[in-house]
Amino acid sequence: MGSVLEQLINGLGTGSIYALIALGYTMVYGIAKMINFAHGDIIMVGAYVLYVTVTQFKLPVIAAVAITVTFCAVLGITIEKIAYKPLRKAPSLAVLITAIGMSFLLQSLALLIFNANPIAFKSIIDVQTVKLGNTTVSGVTLVTLIVTMICMITLSLFISKTKAGSAMRAVSEDKAAAQLMGINVNRTISMTFAIGSALAAVAGILFVCQYQSIKPTLGALPGIKAFVAAVLGGIGSVPGAMIGGVLLGVIESISKAYISSELTDAIVFGVLVLVLLVKPSGLLGKNRIEKV
């Protein structure tokens, strides 16, 4: 059992994966005002696509990663078009139930294609373990941290500097007004789903490199935990998702090391319950007053 510092770094590693997934939840919530329950399962799809491209088609790593990310982005757009778009004016209960159905659909398709047995997968990241004094950081964790950092900086720049990014912000402020200003709302929503799913694919790739095993339910738990992270940071807030993800990863790794690994999930969900009861808007979320 390594030092506290080591635990912190491990926590940072898983936390940044959560953060990548949480970004998708938060962006979609900001724009479509819905919890995309199937988001976690995109990670799983990403993992399988990577597995197929690397081990079956023997593609070089870069090409495999590119295909994985593209595949997931397209999948995200498709899901939105088929399942969520017809329900934009429907009660939120209906949308949430559809999203749960979508999550089940992806899992059961994976089950039918690859069956329930976990597939061993050798990490595509070939980086040496780094030693700093008596703390060791695995190569995968290091790459995870760097990749996450790059993704986040790129995303932040995209949202704040580009025209498409400001369209996204506008739609999340007020859909109707954005439409009146000539913003193509449908395209903006599609783009959000594409970006969110692409980030989930990246998270999926990093995730299998860390755990080296793939199964159809792989995305469910990290998906829900990333959602917890998104809520913790304040749903709808992009920096919130990053902070929430990292925080959650650290909480998880500390409680795994020092409390009990069986109770870790209970602690993580306990955090969610606590946040929602004490400050439902999360760390960086905005409070909204309901109009009567």
Partner: peptide, 19 residues
């Protein structure tokens, strides 16, 4: 495996149909 697929289809189809 098919049971799960059935559930998924029921959820999505019912919601799309109703709402």
């Amino acid at each position: 495996d098919f049971r799960m697929l059935l559930y998924a289809v029921v959820l999505i189809a019912m919601m799309l149909f109703n709402s």
